[in-house]
Design a protein around this nucleic acid. Structure first.
Lengths: 184, 184
DNA sequence: TATTGTTATACTCTATAACTATA
DNA sequence: TATAGTTATAGAGTATAACAATA
């Protein structure tokens, strides 16, 4: 818990960094380092709230997507929203189905499509848990007033846009990975 | 790559969210969702830059810590800076040692301590790779001027402080997890 | 006794590829 | 052919616990 000297809040890069890496933009590196650290801490907070329920953030993400949809949806929609591959969705649904939180139901018209639905047991669970996460979100940014929160969202949005545009231009692989958002 | 409707930039929660979760603070949830997404995208960018070198961000984290230290350091120091457990450090060092990027050397005085050192091969590699990441960081926040970058770092710092303080108060588990910073 | 490090095991998540079945 | 989903395998990263050696 006690961390080393680099663990200041926020992370600041000193003259030693500047000497080692004269070509780097200190401000930019500080932005990214603090971005990564803040997100790590925030998602750790979410994870620790979910631990008593024996759910991971990804699992809750699936449940929240289903709750949000309000009706059974096919695998590939979950995959798209979660930004993950088909194999992972199958695996996630397997786990949730084993726990009785989710149910596979046949698609009315397409026989190759499988719909995933929340069980009666899962609905009250989602209604219990998501407010806990929302409250945690509120607490984590409690030191920022409404205007500052809006500034933060806006700055992050501009970074997102820059990342996505340079991704597209370079023909690079998509940002990929987990969205880690908890849609609701 | 084409994402669903929720994939606006930045993520904005509409009236449907407000209806479903009247107790939530929309601004706060938007902050956290965009924070997590931006960090995901940024770390995906780092990971994709490291892929040609067949290195993960954690592995480079170890190399950067060693480069930064400028001298061989014991395992537990790496663990502290990386915010990971002893077992993980052993495992990481194993992998890097197998690739010839790192070397275990005996501690001059303490015989229970093992020092980890960069090899001659690793030094130029670190000098080649870290500037790539620094350049990527610069590019990702290129749309923000110096003042806006400073604002972002400052806002993130205040969120970090809030998280850490409430962690301490609740006696909750430490934020834990990976710092994901690339010290240098 | 407390610390340093190793080893082993298990779990989450991701990625990939081969496969079946359906459209 | 293209899409939907399953299955299997591999790997990264983390957590935990048991363990040996040293301070």
């Amino acid at each position: 818990m006690a961390r080393d000297a680099r663990d200041s809040i926020p992370i600041r890069l000193g003259p030693a960094f500047e000497r080692s890496w004269p070509a780097a933009s200190i401000g930019a590196v500080e932005c990214i380092m603090n971005l990564l650290r803040t997100a790590d801490w925030a998602s750790a907070r979410h994870a620790s709230l979910l631990r008593p329920y024996d759910l991971t953030t990804t699992q809750l993400g699936v449940l929240a997507i289903l709750y949000d949809a309000g009706e059974p949806i096919p695998h590939h929609v979950i995959g798209t929203r979660l930004l993950t591959k088909a194999g992972t969705v199958s695996w996630l649904v397997d786990g949730l189905e084993r726990r009785g939180l989710v149910r596979r139901v046949p698609h009315p018209t397409s026989r190759r499509t499988v719909l995933v639905a929340l069980t009666e047991e899962a609905v009250p669970l989602v209604r219990e848990i998501l407010p806990l996460l929302h409250a945690a979100d509120r607490a984590m940014v409690a030191d920022l007033n409404a205007e500052e929160q809006e500034t933060l969202v806006s700055l992050l949005g501009r970074v997102q846009l820059t990342i996505r545009m340079t991704d597209a231009c370079q023909g690079d692989s998509a940002p990929g990975g987990e969205d880690a958002t908890l849609p609701s």
